[in-house]
């Protein structure tokens, strides 16, 4: 497994765990987003940096090498795919807002779309790194 794939796995799993916990707090338990957002952002940053440092220590050579042409293509395709996930969520959120006029619901849907879009990005990277590009 390449460094890029390991990195995508770590970032995807981090977002699933921390993003899932955030959504459980905010949507499930009714904690105000203003209270849950700071731990979510800080948690994501700290865990991501720690995981990247560990990966870099394990594979220092690969970690320091620049993204090559195939990896760049994979990242572009994965970002293109994830943009549809984000756009779909935003359109659904705006539609819901037009119907219900509920700004908090719009916030939740857009933030959930952002998290799902990033998870889709990493998932697509893993898939493309293993398949024919």
């Amino acid at each position: 497994m390449s460094f890029r794939e390991r990195s995508a796995w770590v970032m995807g799993c981090t977002l699933i765990l921390i993003g899932g916990f955030y959504l459980k707090l905010v949507i499930g338990d009714g904690v105000p987003p203003s209270f849950a957002a700071v731990p979510f952002v800080l948690g994501t940053i700290v865990v991501s940096i720690a995981a990247q440092v560990v990966l870099a220590v394990i594979s220092p050579r690969e970690a320091s090498s620049p993204v090559d042409e195939r990896e760049r293509l994979v990242i572009q395709k994965a970002t293109h795919f994830s943009s549809y996930v984000l756009a779909t969520g935003v359109v659904v959120g705006l539609g819901m807002f037009m119907i219900s006029q509920d700004g908090m619901k719009l916030f939740h849907i857009v933030l959930t779309s952002l998290i799902l879009g990033q998870i889709a990005d990493y998932g697509a990277q893993i898939f493309l790194l293993r398949s024919r590009v």
Partner: peptide, 14 residues
């Protein structure tokens, strides 16, 4: 390029 890209070229995946 990376070793994994060379492998992908050899396997006709890229």
């Amino acid at each position: 390029v990376s070793r994994h890209t060379i492998i992908a070229i050899e396997q006709a995946r890229y």
